[in-house]
C-alpha cells in the first residue's frame, strides 16, 4: 500500500472512532437508566401520585406539571419567536441596529438556565407579582426558549430561495403576500422542527423552574396557572439529592429519568416525523 492510501485509511478510522466513542457514551447512559429504571415503570407508576413520603406511588403530578408548563412555554415563545424571525429575516434592513439585535439573540441562547431562573423570579414572581406558579415558570422557560425559536425559524426562512420572493413581488404581490404564500409554506416545517427541539430542551430544564413555581411535593394537580406544580426534572433532582432516604428513592429516581428521557425523545421524534410529513406534502 502506498502512503496516500495509508493516510486515507488512517483518517477514516480516526473519524470512525469519534463517532464510535460518541455513540458509546450515549448508549452507556441509556443502558444504565433503562436497566435500573424499567423495573419500576408501570402503568400505575405513570398515573398515581407519590405516597408515603415519596417512597411509593407514581409520578403522575410531575408528568402533568411538565406537560402544562411546556404548553405555556410554547404558547408564549412560539408566536413571539416566529414573529420576530419573520420580521428580522423578511422586513428588517441589514444595518448596525439589526445586527446588534441578532447578535444579542444569539448570545441569549448561550445564557445559563439558572440565570433565566433568577431573572424569572425577579421579573414574574416579584415585580409582576404573579407568584411562584405554572404561569411564572412557563414564562421563564418561554424566555429561555425564545432565542432558540428565533434562530431556528430564521434559518428555515433563509433556506427559502430568494427567487420565490422576487417572483411574487414581480407579479404585484405585496411583501406580506409574498411571505404568506411563497415563504411561510416552505419554511414552516423547519420552523416547527427547531421550535419543538427547543421546547423539548425546555421540558427537561430544572433551573428555570426551581424558584419560579416547581414544588417539592403536592397532593393535588394545579387547577389554574396560578398554582404551584410538580415537574419531572425537578422531581428527579429532589429524589436524587434531597430525599430523606436516598437509597429507597433511587429506583424511583431512575424510573423518573427514564420517563423524562422517553418524553423528550418522543417530542424529538415527533419533530422529525412532522418535518418528513410536511416536506412530502410540499413536494406534491
Amino acid at each position: 500500500m502506498n502512503k496516500k492510501k495509508v493516510t486515507e485509511q488512517l483518517g477514516f478510522w480516526v473519524l470512525r472512532l469519534c463517532v464510535g466513542i460518541t455513540g458509546l457514551i450515549l448508549l452507556i447512559i441509556l443502558f444504565d437508566i433503562v436497566t435500573k429504571g424499567i423495573g419500576k415503570v408501570s402503568w400505575r407508576f405513570l398515573v398515581e401520585s407519590p405516597r408515603n413520603g415519596m417512597t411509593e406511588g407514581g409520578i403522575f403530578p410531575a408528568i402533568v406539571g411538565t406537560f402544562l408548563v411546556t404548553m405555556l412555554t410554547a404558547v408564549f415563545a412560539v408566536p413571539l419567536g416566529m414573529g420576530c424571525a419573520v420580521y428580522l429575516n423578511e422586513y428588517a434592513d441589514d444595518n448596525v441596529f439589526t445586527r446588534i439585535i441578532r447578535m444579542s439573540i444569539r448570545n441569549l441562547s448561550g445564557v445559563p438556565s439558572i440565570v433565566y431562573g433568577l431573572f424569572g423570579v425577579v421579573l414574574f414572581v416579584q415585580m409582576m407579582r404573579i407568584g411562584t406558579c405554572v404561569l411564572a415558570a412557563g414564562l421563564t422557560l418561554g424566555l429561555m426558549t425564545l432565542p432558540w425559536v428565533i434562530t431556528a425559524s430564521e434559518e428555515a426562512l433563509k433556506n427559502v430561495p430568494q427567487s420565490y420572493r422576487n417572483g411574487a413581488l414581480a407579479l404585484g404581490a405585496t411583501r406580506w403576500q409574498a411571505i404568506r404564500s411563497n415563504v411561510l409554506p416552505y419554511s414552516i416545517s423547519g420552523m416547527l422542527t427547531g421550535t419543538i427541539l427547543g421546547l423539548a430542551r425546555a421540558a427537561g430544564e430544572t433551573a428555570p423552574i426551581l424558584f419560579t413555581g416547581a414544588a417539592f411535593f403536592l397532593p393535588f394537580l394545579p387547577k389554574s396557572p396560578f398554582e404551584q406544580f410538580m415537574a419531572l426534572p425537578y422531581h428527579l433532582y429532589i429524589m436524587v439529592t434531597q430525599h430523606h432516604s436516598l437509597e429507597t428513592a433511587r429506583p424511583i429516581a431512575y424510573a423518573t429519568a427514564l420517563v423524562l428521557i422517553a418524553l423528550i425523545c418522543s417530542m424529538n421524534m415527533f419533530a422529525v416525523i412532522l418535518r418528513y410529513k410536511l416536506r412530502k406534502q410540499k413536494k406534491e
Binding site: P161, S163, Y164, N166, G167, A168, L169, A170, L171, G172, A173, T174, Q177, S181, N182, Y186, K282, K283
Partner: peptide, 29 residues
C-alpha cells in the same frame, strides 16, 4: 409591478401546481 411584468433569467416557477403558478398574480391582485 402589476403594470410592468418581469421574466427572470433563471426560470423561477413556484413550488406549486402549473395552474396555481399562473393564477398566482391574479389571486394576489
Amino acid at each position: 409591478r402589476r403594470k410592468v411584468g418581469m421574466v427572470f433569467q433563471k426560470s423561477n416557477p413556484f413550488p406549486k401546481s402549473i395552474f396555481d403558478n399562473v393564477a398566482y398574480g391574479l389571486r394576489v391582485n
